[in-house]
Amino acid sequence: MSNFSDDLLRAAARLHARRTGQKGPLKSACVRRSISTSYYAIFHFSLDEAALRLIGTSNELRQRRRLFVRTLSHTGLTITYGKLKGATIEKSVEDLFRLPATAAGPISTPAFVQQLATAYLDAKAKREDADYNLSEPLSATDARQLHRRVRRAIRDWKSAASAADRDTKHAVALLLSLKGKLRDQ
């Protein structure tokens, strides 16, 4: 798959960057487009991750991955990441993350998952204000902070590569494909 999310992050950075000699506040349109673009970076990263883990990574499977990601939705991501944002995985989905021969009880959310979940939820909240609620103030500081947060979350997710990490990523991908719900909740 392409590095579409990386391209979006670069575009977001250009939107909130100051040109040499530029003074005064950044234009609101640049701040808001930067925030919206950072959101879409983490959104598309999540879609790509789910598709690569559940469908497969080979080039021949590109069309199948594209068909699959069309079934994922903003709502499904919001529900999924809402259940992964805390110190422990929400009880309604914790069995999906339990490794074999692991005792019952709460499961700690791995830091790289919690980071991605909270970055997504923050980006989602700010993106809706950026795009639809022009009366809600958003600053260049907000745009830069969100960009850093999304970039770090994606970097740390990519760095998590142990067998347990890969198993957790697969469970996250499954939960995304199920729109955040294991049963009729």
Binding site: L121, D122, A125, P137, S139, T141, D142
Partner: peptide, 9 residues
């Protein structure tokens, strides 16, 4: 609820 923190200019 997720706390979305913003900084006012």
């Amino acid at each position: 609820r997720f706390p979305s923190v913003r900084f006012s200019e």
